[in-house]
Structure formats: structure tokens, C-alpha cells
């Protein structure tokens, strides 16, 4: 680097004292206090082996309980119980398609969060989420054009493609397809059927998947007890190790599955990364 640059850099650094930029002196204590007051992710709690064994044992029981919640008699009993416990009024969405349990949602939930947040560059969003982001390698599709990491996505990311070519959208923003990646998660359908949507069990490679065809309400984010309805197009939901993926588009089922199958986990449990 030329010496003049070094001199200029030195002079720029010398401006720092007179700029008196903020120092954030009180931040460590405030941040620590906020963290101690908040619900901490399970993975950040000190490990307790005994509880882990109990959790493993309880998981099948919880699954059975969730299925029971689907029945109208149990829903009624649960609604009565929650109403009598000073909880918020609980309502149940219209019945879903056979085999899938609609989840309860709270009608006086806090204000819906900002949808998906602003459009970001894919690289910036991938850095922000802090996990390895997977992308389809479908040649016709090409790379994602933008990404979101808004509140609604929790710790996840949404990769976006513009409505070009085979990707169409009534969305005024021109989003043709979204691939949403959420760490962890479950394959259980977090939605209720509010329209002509149909739900089918399909496969993506060897993995079980769900195909929801037609507009439907997606209920998110997965904050405890709070589900915010949001209209989404046809959706393919499947899982890879450590990740739940949702492909939202107006593509036909076969094409959506073909795109999803280009995202493959490698033996190390990861996949194509940005």
C-alpha cells in the first residue's frame, strides 16, 4: 500500500478522539440482566442429564397428547380449562384436512410482527443467522436473489427468488418463491386450512414431506402460545438433519419437489452451503 495511504489512514484514525463516538459502557450489565430475565433457549441451559432422560421418555407421550387435542371433545375440555385459568381466550381454527390437527391460536395475541423484514443480500442474511444455509442447486432456478431474517422467522432465514420465468406471483413485491429454513422444528403442519387447500403426504428424496396445495394460513411464529395467521401459497415442508425447510411458491407439486431434492445433506449432516 502506498505510503500516502498509510499517512491518510493514520490521520483518519487520529480523528477518533475528537469524534467521541459512543462507547456503550453500560451494555454488558444491561444485556446480562435482560438475558437473565428472558426465557433462555433450552440449548443454553446448563445440561441436566436426569431431565434429558425424562424428556426422551416423554416425547412419545407428548405426541399422543397432541393427537388427542385434535379431537373436538378434548379441544372443548382444553378451552374450558384455559378460560378458567386466567389465560387468554382460546379459539380453534376451522377443522383441517383429515389426519392433521389444527393448532389453537390466541385471538388477542400481541401485535403481529413485521412480516419477513426487509430484503437483505443473501450473504449478509446468511452471516446473520449463524448456521449453514442450504441452497437448491437446480440449474433452471439459479441462486436466490435476496433473503429475509425478520422476527417472524425466529432464528431462521428465508431465501427469495424473484417472480421470473416459471416463478409467478400475485405478490406486489414480485416474490416468486421463498425457501424458509428454520433450525430444529418439527414436520407437524403448523397451519390451518382456510380455503381450497389440500394436504398430501409426499417424499423429498427419502424424507417424508407434506405438500399443502393452494393458499392457506400459516401460523407463526412459534412463540409459546402465540400463533399469527398469515396467508401463504402452496407449500412443501420437509426436514434435513437439524433443519426444517419450507418451500413456498405457486409451482406445481412435482416441480417444487424436484427443486427440494436438489438440496441434499452430505454425510456430515450438512448440505450445499452458501
Amino acid at each position: 500500500m502506498p505510503e500516502l495511504d498509510l499517512d491518510l489512514e493514520g490521520r483518519l484514525y487520529d480523528l477518533v478522539p475528537v469524534l467521541a463516538l459512543p462507547e456503550g459502557d453500560g451494555l454488558p450489565e444491561v444485556v446480562a440482566a435482560r438475558i437473565r430475565m428472558q426465557r433462555v433457549p433450552a440449548a443454553l441451559r446448563p445440561p441436566r442429564r436426569g431431565l434429558r432422560v425424562v424428556a426422551v421418555a416423554l416425547t412419545p407421550m407428548l405426541a399422543v397428547f397432541m393427537l388427542l387435542v385434535a379431537s373436538s371433545s378434548v379441544r372443548g375440555w382444553l378451552a374450558d380449562r384455559l378460560d378458567s385459568d386466567d389465560g387468554g381466550p382460546v379459539e380453534f381454527a376451522p377443522p383441517g384436512p383429515p389426519g392433521f390437527a389444527p393448532l389453537p391460536f390466541v385471538t388477542d395475541a400481541p401485535e403481529p410482527p413485521e412480516a419477513l423484514g426487509p430484503r437483505l443480500s443473501v450473504a449478509a442474511a446468511a452471516t446473520e443467522v449463524g448456521f449453514e444455509v442450504l441452497v437448491p442447486t437446480d440449474a433452471a432456478l439459479g441462486p436466490p436473489a435476496f433473503a429475509h431474517t425478520g422476527h417472524e422467522l425466529g432464528d431462521g432465514i428465508a431465501l427469495g427468488w424473484e417472480a421470473v420465468g416459471e416463478l409467478v406471483s400475485p405478490d406486489p413485491l414480485g416474490t416468486g418463491m421463498l425457501l424458509i429454513e428454520i433450525p430444529g422444528g418439527a414436520l407437524a403442519p403448523p397451519f390451518v386450512n382456510t380455503g381450497p387447500a389440500s394436504v398430501q403426504s409426499v417424499t423429498v428424496g427419502d424424507a417424508e414431506a407434506l405438500w399443502v396445495e393452494g393458499p392457506h394460513d400459516y401460523l407463526g411464529p412459534p412463540d409459546p402460545g402465540v400463533f399469527v395467521p398469515e396467508q401463504t401459497p402452496s407449500t412443501l415442508v420437509w426436514q434435513l438433519p437439524g433443519l426444517t425447510l419450507r418451500l413456498e411458491s405457486w409451482l406445481p407439486k412435482a416441480r417444487a419437489i424436484a427443486i427440494a431434492e436438489t438440496i441434499e445433506a452430505d454425510p456430515a449432516g450438512r448440505s450445499v452451503v452458501l
Partner: peptide
């Protein structure tokens, strides 16, 4: 915004903490 800078940094640190389980 100098006035908002601390609040923004504070929120960012809390968000980063909550996302630490997935930090590579």
C-alpha cells in the same frame, strides 16, 4: 442516530445470545 445506538446494540447482543446454540 447516536440516541438509538445503545438500544440497537443491546438488542443485537440479546438476539445473538439467543442464537448462540446454532453458532458454528
Amino acid at each position: 442516530s447516536r440516541a438509538e445506538a445503545e438500544d440497537i446494540a443491546q438488542d443485537a447482543f440479546v438476539r445473538a445470545y439467543m442464537a448462540l446454540p446454532r453458532f458454528r
